[in-house]
Amino acid sequence: MIYIPLFIIMCSIILTFYRVVKGPTIPDRITAADSIGTQFFAVIIMLAFLFKADFFLDIAMVYAVLLFVDILVMAKYLESKRVSDND
């Protein structure tokens, strides 16, 4: 029963990955990677209840913190670099 939402979220991750590969600018790719990270965060929580293992929730918490710091660091770095690939 729980496999159907997992399958649909995996399809959505594949659709989002198209934007990571193709995306014309660098912020496009970062946004798509952020989306994949949040969707995978939901997948981890669903796996925690599928396997009945509570420590997966701690892993999901640390994953959310690392994702946030990742996006913030990349945004700040690009803001100071002023790089652009299409202009």
Binding site: T25, I26, P27, I30, T31, D34, T38, A64, F68, I71, L72, A75, K76, L78, E79, R82, V83, S84, N86, D87
Partner: peptide, 21 residues
């Protein structure tokens, strides 16, 4: 998640605006 998701989106939008993409 409620706190950090808007912060990340705002930082990305500001970066993209400053880079003129």
């Amino acid at each position: 998640l409620l706190i950090t998701s808007p912060i990340a989106a705002q930082a990305l939008a500001r970066t993209a605006y400053r880079q003129r993409c």
